[in-house]
Design a protein around this nucleic acid. Sequence first.
DNA 1: TCTAATTTCGCAAACGTTTGCGGTAAATTT
DNA 2: AAATTTACCGCAAACGTTTGCGAAATTAGA
Lengths: 330, 330
Amino acid sequence: MTNTTLKLLAQQLQLSISTVSRALKDHPDISTATKAKVHALANSLDYEPNAYAIQLRTQSSKIFGVIVPAIANLFYDSFIAAIEEESRKNGYALMILQSSNNIENELNNLKIFRQNRVSGVFACLSAHTQNLEVYEKMSDRDIPVVFFDIVPKENKYTKVRMADERCAIIAAENIIQRGAKRVLALFGDPALSISLKRKQAFQQFMEKYAPKTHCTYEHTHSSLEAEAAFKKHLNKIQKFDTVFAMTDEILIGVMKAIQALNIKVPKEIGVISISNGFIPSLYHPNISYVETSGYELGKLAFVQMLANLKGGKTLSELTVDARFVEGGSM
Amino acid sequence: MTNTTLKLLAQQLQLSISTVSRALKDHPDISTATKAKVHALANSLDYEPNAYAIQLRTQSSKIFGVIVPAIANLFYDSFIAAIEEESRKNGYALMILQSSNNIENELNNLKIFRQNRVSGVFACLSAHTQNLEVYEKMSDRDIPVVFFDIVPKENKYTKVRMADERCAIIAAENIIQRGAKRVLALFGDPALSISLKRKQAFQQFMEKYAPKTHCTYEHTHSSLEAEAAFKKHLNKIQKFDTVFAMTDEILIGVMKAIQALNIKVPKEIGVISISNGFIPSLYHPNISYVETSGYELGKLAFVQMLANLKGGKTLSELTVDARFVEGGSM
DNA sequence: TCTAATTTCGCAAACGTTTGCGGTAAATTT
DNA sequence: AAATTTACCGCAAACGTTTGCGAAATTAGA
């Protein structure tokens, strides 16, 4: 079956294409009677406007591009879910591509976005992206880019991210409040700015407000490393009374170790992490965590995108605030 | 900056649009010299063909639509990751929409797909979709549909899914092999055919090959329900020596209960589940599970899509086989 | 040297919309 | 009854490609 077009409708109704087009979108020039007829036929013939013809004519695509390191990731998932919701409400669709933290993929994805003349792109930089030229190229084409989570340093970009330092500080606050004496603080890949930021903030805060508390810091790259690190440090003479996990990945490793060694939480050790909440809810007792909501971030990113689309440039860095969620692990 | 078009290139080179177009795609009609010139200018001006004009002209969009109940789901994630990989290799992009198990959303999403004239759609039915008319509408428009995971019963559709019965049977085999005497088997929403299929297969197999083993069956709709069900049954006089969780969600509930009651796995109770492997790896010891790989399913679905696109109709139901993955919980 | 084949390119239509502008007939005002 | 307004509607161009066909220019064949 061939697709119904305006032309077809026009022929069957003995009207011009323009009249049909206007009737379909309630243009005041068209009489109510004609509109009714047109709508009726359009419905019965299942008319669907051709998005490509529209875009060609109007030069706007109603599609957003999204680049994430990986789709299969709890944080990005919820981010995507959020902008998907908002997009649908606003008549946009999403084109989602993953970079797999690979710069070449990132470039390719952006190319696809350009060729599809997306209305805007949400981009999370892949881990080691240095060259932002490609993104400049998007801006040159008047395609707004909203960076999220992993964002460039320069101020000239629009970016939204979690309040990384705040997260770490909130965690530190709660650790101090617990009266911790010895804490093991596990952070992620030191090559990522987010790891460094969090560690710095955490460390400074602890040294300032709880100088007597003994902190051990370690960077790990995976759950396995985190698990190993935990076990290693626990075997020493001095035991820790609190452990802080900077990411879900790390928390997973820590919890495996804790289960393996049959350590009681929170009696023998307190656990706190930074997370969007899913992983912490998997354990008993639930792990207390500082919430970083990909969902919230997505909502915020979308607002920024819309602002960018309407009122020209809104260059700024917005952060979504963090909050402490009480589990039973502290 | 305005986008570079064929027309622009043609003007600058004093050539016709058609020549430029052909030169860009290595048409034999064009001389090598001209091709070189065209390519050079195209590069320096960052020419990107307008995908919309191409689609309008060629009537094919190089975009696949994907409908999943939720993006933020481990299984669908890996499915999406798989078809995204394949799509990119084959020059396609993905448009991903979530139905949130809501029929209205599902309809809306399909509409967007039609309007964007996608080349094909990968669809996972929302939980209670009965009316497949909409999907017929896609076929009427020669848009192939590959159903995955939750698929319609009728044979006339192309579908790929996990070998649901096999999964349950493999689980049953291992439970029998363990010498289980009393098992608690927890299944999902009985409104879903997948729950019934798995339960039926499981039950039949157990009754046939281990008639003396006492099995208790229960359906739950969430982690919380699963947790409650586990606790309820455990409080009775007779204790279970093995528990079977049909999904990750159920497993999560079960494990929370197990941690809360400080039950030793596998000494006091054996645990086995059906999963893609992530959740089972979160615990110590790792939970043994029957693997259902969304990734594998995605690969398979893509093959089906390609076949559908090329050789007309390939109506069939393919299943990806399951395998047992040994953790330490049995 | 003249015709025939070949190489290289341009013309123009088409894909399905949107929209400025102009036109006709009816309704309203003088 | 003539002049003006109003209500409806159609013409045609444009968006950026692709592609069948024909034409000019070049080369080969005799």
